[in-house]
Design a protein around this nucleic acid. Structure first.
Lengths: 344, 344
DNA sequence: ATGAAAGCGCTAACAA
DNA sequence: TTGTTAGCGCTTTCAT
């Protein structure tokens, strides 16, 4: 079992001192080629691997980053993780991933548990519950300890750290505008009623676009929902009672559900009703018809966040140089909106 | 910055010895209530947190587990991760997550990097490339060092460790049988051509079911593909040239793509062609129509794997007590297959 | 009831 | 060129 060899054992076996071994393995100029070779060969032969723990304890850097995901089943976050993973790997960092599952307690516990020298910094997305509760002390405390944090996607003004966010208002604005330009007159909005700022921003963008085109928002065309079953009913009800020719859905699942409802009602997409979704994931790609949607660059978000954090950790940027990076989105046109010949 | 306080500082501040502080914080009976209280209060006040690294270095246990995911964008693996996360959290373990992205090199590097005292054990799914190359030395070496590994989903006989796998043959058998019982006569199979055993097993199950019902397999109805564009063409070609009334797809994406193709051809599902997919994820749930599919219990898989590994780590099970756990599947009936009144 | 000292695996300043 | 020693933060004998 556990026959991991240590520097000490090498020293004993070769009748040299521990520090000689250490230096030899680090290829120090102080050690003669001969001894070096002898030691290195022995190490290789016995598959010596330095104990990371001991190293970290020494230089107070663990080369690992804590990642907080609110939820891994959302394709978007999975992609952010991929982005993070890509740069951390490249830079030789490990990541400790924790899924808060939108729970305040889990978030606090996790951060608590990791901020004991286990990690050099955090990349986090605030959980829904935390946002609702509005207590951000755990973030503040960690920042006070001098541990850098980069927040992504869901952020809060009270937390004074680097942030990487989606350009929500503008994206929603552009999506809505796209629908209007493709001649939709009655554009519905499917939103979630969770208290996330993100949702609010997207609604704002929608409203802003309507205003811009002198359309008076119709509250009957705005659905805010909690659970999926409700949503289907709500959409059906809305369609029963209103004329609708365009729908902007605020997240991917809503888009998928809306599509299912329309298909079930045999409503032709996009001839009768156009749909634009948010967050361009697999659901949008593989639905029938494939959905035009606002592509969020999850991967980029992850990469930017990771880069920023590592720069902070490695002190290439001063700790209090705080920045908010805004990741632009791009509308991906598929088959759920009318093809326009005039491009704007 | 970094004003994390240490035991030493507490000792200095309170004019006691380091070991007294250590004992007091561990609530040792050796220390007087008075001193204990004094020390504990001071610690609390200054937000003392023991340095995990130092502890790990001491007791040779890190309470962290390395997780290898071949790919996080596949909903199934995301769910496995959730399952793992759930039990590790409950048992006070951290997880270091690494996405191999189906690369052999990445897999080897990662395992190499983590097996230096950083982790107590691995939960891994072998990458596609590794399976193709057929070199499993990295797994064997780690096992030899006495570090436990639990393999899930994609496994290999050469690696002698605990495994948690899906009951692939039987699941495919049952899915195919279901199609036949719902009166499909010409059942096509959409498979991937990667050299994964899993795929082979599922094909075996399909063939076994056909044989059972005295149906001679028709090679023209079996599609093996590499990339998505190819697949669409292949399906179209197959439908052009053959009579097909049932399709069994071997993974979720194939199912989604097949559905898109059928919808585009205006083929009625399930009246004209029934579909059963594998791995019941969001795509199956939100497609039009929602797909009947073989539900794999990803979450359970993760939980079982994590439990097994932790038991090994904590030596509740001897290291060489090797087991393969088979996770059963369940067919979830939705709208892509004909409703049967006779239930089998 | 308290403290001194050794040690986990390693590095680095200093001596030889 | 090699070795001795102290120390990273903590636990744990063994003294006191």
């Amino acid at each position: 079992m556990s026959k991991r060899i240590t520097i000490k054992q090498i020293a004993a076996a070769l009748h040299v001192s521990i520090s000689t071994v250490s230096k030899a393995l680090n290829d120090s100029y102080e050690i003669s080629e001969e001894t070096k070779k002898k030691i290195q060969d022995y190490a290789k032969e016995h598959k010596y691997k330095p104990n990371t723990l001991a190293l970290s304890l020494q230089n107070k850097k663990t080369k690992t980053i804590g990642i907080l995901l609110p939820n891994i089943l959302t394709y978007y976050y999975a992609r952010v993780l991929r982005g993070i993973e890509e740069v951390t790997t490249e830079k030789g960092y490990n990541i400790i991933t924790c899924i808060t599952n939108e729970s305040y307690k889990k978030e606090v516990d996790t951060m608590e548990m990791l901020s004991n020298g286990t990690i050099d910094g955090f990349i986090a997305c605030i959980s829904e519950e935390t946002l609702k509760i509005g207590n951000f002390d755990h973030f503040k405390n960690i920042l006070e300890d001098g541990t850098p944090i980069v927040l992504y996607d869901r952020v809060h003004a009270e937390i004074n750290c680097d942030k990487v966010v989606t350009d929500n208002i503008k994206s929603a604005y552009k999506a809505t505008r796209f629908l209007m330009r493709s001649e939709c007159k009655n554009i519905a909005l499917i939103s979630t009623s969770e208290g996330l700022d993100i949702g609010k921003f997207r609604v704002d963008g929608y409203l802003k676009a309507l205003r811009k085109y002198d359309v008076i928002p119709n509250e009957d065309l705005i659905i805010r929902y909690n659970d999926e079953e409700n949503l289907k009913d709500a959409i059906n009800k809305m369609l029963d009672e209103n004329k609708v020719d365009g729908i902007f859905t605020i997240d991917e699942i809503s888009g998928a559900i809306t599509t299912q409802v329309l298909n079930k009602r045999n409503i032709k997409i996009p001839q009768e009703i156009s749909i634009i979704g948010f967050t361009n994931g697999i659901l949008s790609r593989y639905s029938t018809p494939p959905l035009t949607s606002v592509n969020r660059f999850a991967h980029t978000t992850g990469k930017v966040a990771a880069k920023r954090l590592i720069d902070k950790i490695e002190e290439k940027i001063p700790f209090d140089d705080i920045v908010t990076e805004i990741i632009k989105t791009k509308l991906v046109e598929r088959d759920s909106t009318k093809k326009m010949f005039i491009k704007f």
